[in-house]
Each structure stands twice: as C-alpha cells, then as structure tokens.
C-alpha cells in the first residue's frame, strides 16, 4: 500500500532500536517504532511506515473485515478486476491471519456459526 492515509495491522518480527521489522501478511517491511514498549510478537497498527500503537488479537479480529475491504479497494484502484481483487484480498488477509496464529480464514470469521440466526 502506498497511500498515506490508511492504517494497516502487522505483526512485529524483530526490533532494532528505532526500526522494527514487521510482517504485513507475508510481506516483510521495516517500519519506524512510534511508541514505547514494542516487542516481537506484538500486533501493531502501521500508518505511513510507522507503528503508532499496539493491539490485542481480539482488537485485530474486530477490524478484520475493514482491512480486507481496504486491500480490495487498493487493488481495484490499481486496475485489478473486482472478482480478482476480492480473491487476492482474501488470500492476503488469510496470510496475515495465519501469521498471527489464527487458523480461521477470513471467510470463516465473517460467517461465524449462529450469527445469521441472530
């Protein structure tokens, strides 16, 4: 993603001074450390190349739909067809979920048993 505005989640792999290496769904990136107490394994919010804060796994799952949709939007904007964008966005989100140790896929998370009947 190269737009300035979107915030995206990532997992911290390592920290070296002001720089952290993070996993953005299978893509490794170096980002700036923008808060105190960052550590490997943490889930963080990345905004224009800086980690601005940490999140719990539960926080991340609450946001999972919008992240998928943001990726899809980016792909469509870059010329990918809607169907292909949806497929790729789901794939990227599933990689991200797996990197966080979540075995469920985005499709499963969005159709949790029982929710349709509520």
């Amino acid at each position: 993603m190269v737009d300035v505005c979107w915030g995206v989640p990532a997992k911290v792999l390592s920290v070296n001074g002001q720089i952290a290496t993070v996993d953005l769904g299978g893509v490794r990136r170096e980002v700036l450390v923008g808060f105190e107490g960052i550590s490997p394994g943490q889930l963080v919010m990345i905004h224009a190349g800086i980690a601005i804060g940490s999140m719990t796994l539960e926080d991340f799952i609450v946001n999972v739909t919008i992240y998928r949709d943001l990726i899809e939007e980016e792909l469509i904007n870059s010329g990918v067809t809607e169907t292909a964008a949806r497929k790729r966005a789901n794939e990227e989100m599933n990689k991200l979920l797996r990197s966080f140790g979540i075995e469920k896929s985005i499709e499963e998370l969005q159709n949790l048993p029982g929710t349709e009947e509520e």
Binding site: V4, Q18, L32, G34, H47, A48, I50, I52
Partner: peptide, 19 residues
C-alpha cells in the same frame, strides 16, 4: 511530506535520530 498528526511522528523520529 503531507499528512496529519498520525504521519508527523514518521517524519519527526528520523530527524531526531539523525537518520
């Protein structure tokens, strides 16, 4: 360098750290 307060630390930290 565009952005609001969210982006500002991504500029401030490299300056402060002489990067």
């Amino acid at each position: 360098a565009i952005g609001f307060e969210t982006t500002a630390p991504s500029y401030a930290l490299p300056f402060r750290e002489n990067m």
